[in-house]
Amino acid sequence: MRGALTPGRPYAWYYLPLNWLLLGLAHLPLPVLHRIADVFYLLMRYVLRYRSRVVLENLRRSFPERTEAEIQQFSADFYRHFADVIVEILKLAAISPAEMARRVQIKNAELFTNQFAAGRTVLALGSHIGNWEWILPTGAVYFPGKADGVYKPLRNAFFEDFMLRLRTRTGSHLIPMRDTLRDMLRRRGQPRSLSMLSDQSPASPEHTYWTTFLHQETAFYTGADKLAAQFKCPVLYVNIVRLRRGYYEIVAEQLHDGDAPLDKDGHAITEAFARCVERDIQAKPADYLWSHRRWKLKRHA
């Protein structure tokens, strides 16, 4: 049974100590948080063995040509990467816009700004590569008032509230996935970017696109194809590349210019997105979220 809510807060009072602890940690300098991440790495890999079966199974199926020694190294590198991502996401609760801009550069920002100048909404498709949670807050710093993101609400009231605060601190705006079409209709023609993490496993085989991805038959959401066709939106693929610990570069590339006609029932954009994600995973295998049960949905279902 849920506890009573603290006035002004949407979660039970007993989450308050956790909230204070996380905020306190977030105010530590990032180099200190990276030292804590070193401890998280050891705990996740050797003590808790966090989803080790899922990680190894995903890696083996995705890289059948690699030796077992290489797979084990990818696994170890993944846990180091994931530990860093955890503390860097937490840092969003306290990081300043100036530090965000210092730590993350956008390589080709003109792909966004040129479309904004033309009064267009840009669909920005990302994946769980690198520190994906830093993409939207960085966009809000570089493009004030023009960085929106689609997200899937969490079931736990505390973590839903906490993550919303983290993701919107620099000025971004979040839209629940179920409200995406309504939001596009209401704000049609508004110059902005609408970010979506489009590599997640769909909940059901309906309204999905199947393709071979990392040697496996894989389902993808098709929302980007439908939105781009209906609203004539340009579409960009967005990747965030780690330059060194705590520093990143966001790289965008155009998948669709917003002018060429699209088949509303086609999947050209989703297929192009899948190829980009596959290419970037193969370039840096450890930087993907291998603990995610990406292939849990089977086509025969």
Score class of each variant (00 low, 15 high):
G139Y: 12
N19S: 13
P29N: 05
S201A: 09
T6M: 13
F162H: 10
V235E: 06
G149N: 10
L262M: 01
A157W: 04
I106K: 09
E217W: 04
V47Y: 00
A283T: 13
E133S: 11
F162I: 08
T113A: 15
N108F: 07
K146E: 10
L289E: 03
T208H: 11
Q115F: 05
L262Q: 08
P17E: 09
D287T: 13
T6V: 13
L243Y: 05
G246I: 02
V85Y: 00
D287M: 15
I95K: 05
H128V: 03
E206A: 15
H256G: 12
N19D: 15
L21F: 09
L16S: 11
T6F: 13
H300K: 11
K296N: 11
G126D: 09
N108E: 05
V54C: 01
A283C: 12
E110K: 02
R9M: 12
W132S: 12
P153G: 15
V277C: 05
L43I: 12
S195M: 10
R186L: 14
W13Q: 09
L194N: 07
R187G: 09
E65L: 02
L25A: 03
Q254A: 15
S291G: 04
A286I: 01
A268Y: 01
T211D: 06
Y79E: 01
F273A: 15
F112Y: 14
E57G: 10
G171V: 00
Y15P: 14
L21R: 06
D225S: 11
K296F: 02
D199L: 03
L111R: 05
F74Y: 09
I129V: 14
L28M: 07
P10D: 03
M196Q: 02
R51A: 00
V39K: 06
M196I: 12
R61I: 02
L125M: 10
A272S: 14
R2Y: 08
L16A: 09
L194K: 07
P31Q: 03
I250E: 10
E133R: 08
L25F: 01
H256E: 11
R169F: 05
A274P: 05
A274C: 08
V251W: 06
A26N: 06
V277F: 01
I175K: 05
A124P: 10
L22Q: 03
Y151I: 13
P31I: 02
Q254P: 10
H81S: 15
L166M: 07
F162W: 07
L48T: 07
H267C: 11
L90N: 15
Y50H: 08
V235P: 13
R178E: 15
R182W: 00
H292Q: 07
A117R: 15
P137T: 11
N114D: 08
Y14T: 06
H173W: 00
M196C: 02
R103H: 13
I95S: 04
N239C: 06
R9F: 03
E217Y: 03
I106G: 12
R244K: 11
A301R: 15
F40V: 07
L5P: 08
E271F: 08
L42A: 13
L164V: 10
L166R: 15
D225K: 03
K152E: 13
K152I: 15
A229C: 08
A140H: 08
F143K: 00
R244N: 09
H128W: 05
R279Q: 09
A83W: 01
D84G: 14
L59S: 02
E133K: 13
L23C: 02
A286Y: 09
H128P: 12
Y151N: 12
R51N: 02
L174I: 08
